[in-house]
Write a protein that binds this DNA or RNA. Sequence first.
DNA 1: TATTGTTATACTCTATAACTATA
DNA 2: TATAGTTATAGAGTATAACAATA
Lengths: 150, 150
Amino acid sequence: MPHPDRHGEALSRMLELVVLVNDDMTRSLARDGLTVSRAHVIWELRRRGSMTQAALADALSVSARNVTGLVDGLAATGFVTRAPHPTDRRATLVSLTDHGAATAEALERGQQEFAHFLFSTMADEQFDNFVDTLGEILGRLRNAGVSDGS
Amino acid sequence: MPHPDRHGEALSRMLELVVLVNDDMTRSLARDGLTVSRAHVIWELRRRGSMTQAALADALSVSARNVTGLVDGLAATGFVTRAPHPTDRRATLVSLTDHGAATAEALERGQQEFAHFLFSTMADEQFDNFVDTLGEILGRLRNAGVSDGS
DNA sequence: TATTGTTATACTCTATAACTATA
DNA sequence: TATAGTTATAGAGTATAACAATA
């Protein structure tokens, strides 16, 4: 087992990674007139098609109140539209506009390029080990919703 | 070089890691009555000692306005105190109270335990590779303040 | 003139609670 | 009764701009 001190160094690097990735996404999305939260909405609509706001709230783990606000913003800037639900007159169907769909594709392309930028020069063995290790760490974090991080 | 598709998978895992680590820190800090931003203030004060608000703004990459708010909150809850700067009468020195210092130590212990929780069962070789790879990725992100992430 | 910190103002994200229209 | 969505309200984090006190 490695020196315990190295564990702290590894965690520091992970925390810096969190910050840098977050900053990078925020900056990059701002160029498309988006925030991280709004991009999540677009992302879900692309993956799963038109949805009611209740379904969006569920998919994004966010309150109904927040969905209203997020959809308000996205509708005002032309990324999504609201339409009455065909059978349930209480509900609203949220869909991507053409602009929203094009943006979703651009986001996906951008993400692919970003992944390439990060990993493409890495040797096979190193890369595989990295992905596996990420998987192990994610497993722990998922199962231990509780812990004692900084 | 690995299949390009695996790059996307690696990035997905990294993004999930960002979310989980963030959630974990938020939940854990809430138990001490802290938020991530306020914990950063305590962290810097522990690392570098008492500082003026201007120095804090610099260290945290945050606006002067924000420092006022953060210090207000931390002072109201007894983690820090404000005192006049001995030589510059414009400035205010922010210091940890005993409670703040004790909290800072607890945060550091918690972070060590968290690192242990994540890494202690890992084989040497895997762990070393992981740390090295994190370093490489951080290097790229630091140097390319610009990129095209999701 | 420049710097330190505060107040004023505003935007985003988050939440709960009350309310309307429907199921 | 229960669900879908909105409005009301609130708190945290972020920011810029104007201002007072001091350098």
